[in-house]
Design a binder for these strands. Structure first.
Lengths: 154, 154
DNA sequence: AACCCATAATTACAGATGTAATCGATAAAT
DNA sequence: ATTTATCGATTACATCTGTAATTATGGGTT
């Protein structure tokens, strides 16, 4: 009782930005207890992205402290939404994402590119270029990607 | 009286997805009356993106009809948020964006790339590539962009 | 002048979201 | 065994969102 009841094929309602932060903490390593998640959100701050956030733009509020009650609420809501699941171990719950980070990234990228750029990737990159937000590293990575792509689609 | 009271430097609170649709309709051509906006949202459906939405993914609900009252509400909220402004002409209001589409695109792209990809563009493109969501056209455009970038940053 | 109509202003209302506090059950400590 | 510390469950509450309906007001119509 109390185990997963309607896990099924819950196609992931949208998760909010705050919920995403929590989800990101879970992606770090799971299954994770609520306390794990809270700790990660507070201490292990270097969590957000795939890559180390070296040159993230300014205005970062990364020192926000997460109240444990708040995190619990977010966790519960995400369980309800079908974004994460849990298994019971004694009377502790251990949570896991029901959607991999990569799948989420794809879904979100696709969404924003559809909404803002008519479904094409290049205009987004172009925007970055035009605003001097494209670094040499970015360009090198893109070139490498393209080479790879051409290799696979010759 | 009733003209712009606190237009000032309102740094644009977040706008919701629905509000964005309305904003997109305004970007099409402004100043625009409420009725203009409503008409665009309903009839001139080909509005969302910069580019024609040829190969947008499926599941598109573009035939949603916008209730005029709803649109008015959204317009008013965006005025309050400082996303759009208006000028009075007789007893009609004509609305204009206070943020250009391009600036919005940049802001949103930056935001998602920071949140999801540690601030780097390439991983987003890589995600597309890995999922066969990168077309030849995309690649060509990217190559052209890169050439341009390298020309400017030699 | 009286009435109607378009348009803006105000109000409505359910559900989502951010942010917690309180309640209840159980495990750990004394 | 009784008390206390934990942790999940339930409840709280203001604000934001989606979606409108109702009201007020100034111009046009009769």
């Amino acid at each position: 009782m109390g185990l997963n009841k309607d896990y099924g094929c819950n196609l992931m309602t949208d998760i909010s930005k705050t919920e995403f932060e929590v989800l990101a903490a879970i992606w770090q390593k799971y299954p994770a207890s609520a306390q794990d998640i809270i700790d990660r959100l507070n201490h292990d701050s270097a969590s957000s992205g795939t890559v180390s956030n070296l040159e993230c733009n300014s205005a970062q509020q990364q020192d926000k402290t997460w109240h444990d009650k708040t995190v619990k609420t977010l966790i519960n809501r995400m369980v309800k939404k079908g974004a994460i699941g849990f298994k019971q171990q004694g009377r502790r719950y251990f949570y896991s994402p029901l959607l991999e980070r990569e799948a989420y990234q794809i879904k979100e990228s696709r969404s924003i590119i559809d909404r803002l750029f008519g479904g094409r990737v290049a205009p987004l990159v172009a925007g970055f270029a035009k605003n001097q937000q494209l670094t040499k590293t970015d360009v090198d990575e893109l070139k490498s990607l393209i080479k790879q792509w051409e290799h696979e689609n010759d």
